[in-house]
Structure formats: structure tokens, C-alpha cells
């Protein structure tokens, strides 16, 4: 864990309560064996492994958890959940932390990944399905890495695997209304929480 300073543990913190209620997982069941971190395909690039995230939740270290790269680098492969000796669905814990991070609009430690997901959803909203060429182009443009992943582009085009124009689906209106309703509902929810 990249940490300096002294930790002030806060048992049964709001963070722990949030995670437990939204993920349905009992955080205190974790006894820190590390089987999750050991099997996690992404733990080698994470600043904190899944085990450390579980520990940080137990200690109530809210900022450390929400600012970690872990929650964004988790690919939801669920290897951790499948192998946890205490049957904690750790992938679900990660999921609930991403929702919390997104709701709090905290600065994501992995901006590119967050941007990717955001663009992905924008494209669904716009055309109902994901147009991979647009996704790649927008990602390169907005993420300020204009030449990323260009290597496979000619091959993809030559194999007829990428269409130039976005797909047209009749259901788009429905999807837009769905997105609008979800957004309104979330705003309502936040307002209630503030009150």
C-alpha cells in the first residue's frame, strides 16, 4: 500500500455500511488470506490488491479506497469471488465501490478506463448499439492519445470487421428515454440524500 502517515481505524464506518448494503457482502468475513490478490489477473498493476481493499474497508479508509486504481483495474473476471475461502463476492464489493466513486464524482485513479466506460455508454445512448470505430476514435481524441491502438485498424477494416457508419436501430428512442429516466431518478435520489 502506498501510504504514509498513521492510520486511524474507524470500525463499522459509513464506507463499510455502504459496501455491505449495496453488495450484500459481509466485509468482516475477510480474514486477509490474500487468495484474491494472488489470483487476480490485474493485481500486479494495482496500487492496492483486492485483499488490501477489503482491509481498507474494514478500517474505514474511505479516500484510500475510492482513490485507488484497483476499483478501475478490476475487470470483473470474478476469479477472486470464485476462490474466496470465506465466500465473499469480492468482485461485487469492487462493483459497489465503483458506483460510490462514480456517484461521488471523485477523480478516478485510472482516467482512461473511466473515460472508456463513459464513452461506451454515450454511444449506447446515441445509437442503441456500440459502434467500435466511433468508440476508438472518440477515446483517442478525448483521452489525448491520438495514435493508440491504430495498429490493428487496417487489418480490421480489410477483414470487413469494422463498419464505417454507426448502426441504425429503431429502438434508439426507447434507449434515450431510459437513459433520461435513470438520470432523473439518480438526481432525485441524490437530492433526497442531501436533504
Amino acid at each position: 500500500m502506498n501510504m504514509t502517515g498513521t492510520i486511524k481505524p474507524s470500525p463499522s464506518s459509513d464506507l463499510q455500511n455502504f459496501v455491505e448494503s449495496r453488495s450484500g457482502q459481509k466485509v468482516l468475513r475477510c480474514y486477509q488470506c490474500g487468495k484474491c490478490s494472488a489470483g487476480c489477473p490485474a493485481s500486479y498493476v494495482m496500487d492496492m490488491g483486492p485483499r488490501q481493499i477489503m482491509r481498507a474497508i474494514q478500517l474505514g479508509l474511505r479516500e484510500k479506497v475510492l482513490e485507488s486504481s484497483t476499483i478501475w483495474l478490476c475487470i470483473s473476471c470474478q476469479t477472486c469471488s470464485a476462490r474466496c475461502p470465506n465466500e465473499i463476492d469480492i468482485a461485487r464489493v469492487m462493483e459497489s465501490l465503483r458506483w460510490l466513486a462514480a456517484a461521488e464524482k471523485s477523480e478516478p485513479a485510472e482516467k482512461d478506463i473511466a473515460l472508456f466506460h463513459q464513452l461506451f455508454l454515450t454511444l449506447i445512448k446515441r445509437s442503441g448499439r456500440v459502434h467500435e470505430l466511433s468508440l476508438g476514435a472518440l477515446y483517442n481524441l478525448l483521452g489525448r492519445h491520438p495514435f493508440a491502438n491504430m495498429k490493428r485498424l487496417p487489418g480490421m477494416l480489410a477483414r470487413g470487421k469494422l463498419s464505417v457508419l454507426p448502426p441504425r436501430v429503431k429502438g434508439v428512442a426507447e434507449i434515450r428515454s431510459l437513459f433520461a429516466k435513470v438520470k432523473a431518478m439518480e438526481k432525485e435520489h441524490q437530492k433526497r440524500e442531501v436533504e
Partner: peptide, 26 residues
């Protein structure tokens, strides 16, 4: 399915609980 749309993939489920359930439900 006629006029099917995206299930939301990893992105909905990563960032938005409601969409991650509602998009596949459609």
C-alpha cells in the same frame, strides 16, 4: 430480436447499477 440494443457490457455494470440491470432487461 428486432431492434435489439446493447446490453451495456462492462461499462454499464462498471459505473451505473440501474443501467446495468435495465439495459439487459429490455
Amino acid at each position: 430480436l428486432e431492434n435489439w440494443t446493447c446490453c451495456g457490457a462492462s461499462s454499464a455494470h462498471t459505473t451505473n447499477e440501474l443501467l446495468s440491470i435495465a439495459l439487459p432487461a429490455r
